[in-house]
């Protein structure tokens, strides 16, 4: 594998693309030559965090407007894997969301907490007028 793999994807804000992009994340996890951990688990977690982040960007950020794009970048090296998901919505306070655990019988509200549990570093920033969810997984 070269020093760093960069994947750049842009799709309309439609949930029909979730499976395809999750699968790309899984395939990338299986292609990491020097990863010593449980590869199957890593692949599942990358698929899951991509799916949760994208669902958030499509449904809440872009309000499922297919005229708005969601932009995703995935960057992987021997040290870490970084996923960035850009949306054009009003944004939200990730630290406040992360503090609120879904009650056992809540139907929603688990997505961000799942990301926070599985990734090593999670930020939600504003960059040039768009929101960016940045999720980093350490691979060493």
């Amino acid at each position: 594998m070269p020093k760093r793999v960069e994947i750049n994807i842009k799709v309309p804000s439609q949930t029909r693309y979730l499976a395809m992009i999750g699968q790309i994340g899984e395939s990338l996890a299986f292609s990491l030559n020097n990863y010593q951990g449980n590869r199957r688990e890593l692949a599942y977690h990358i698929n899951l965090c991509l799916t949760e982040g994208l669902t958030n960007a499509i449904c809440h950020g872009n309000n499922s407007d297919p005229d708005k794009d969601v932009h995703i970048t995935i960057s992987a090296s021997d040290d870490d894997l970084v996923i960035r998901i850009y949306d054009q919505g009003p944004g939200f306070d990730i630290s406040a969301r992360g503090k609120t655990n879904a009650q056992p019988c809540d139907e929603g509200g688990r997505g961000i907490n799942i990301i926070l549990k599985l990734m090593d570093n999670v930020k939600y920033l504003q960059e040039n007028g768009v929101n960016v969810l940045e999720m980093t997984k350490a691979l060493q």
């Binding site: 999750g22 599942y44 698929n47 899951l48 799916t51 949760e52 669902t55 019988c105 809540d106 139907e107 929603g108 688990r110 997505g111 799942i114």
Partner: peptide, 16 residues
């Protein structure tokens, strides 16, 4: 093989 928070939410809805 794969379930996310929306899938879990649908099952919780059915359970409730």
């Amino acid at each position: 093989r794969f379930i996310d928070s929306s899938g879990l939410g649908a099952l919780v809805s059915g359970f409730k």
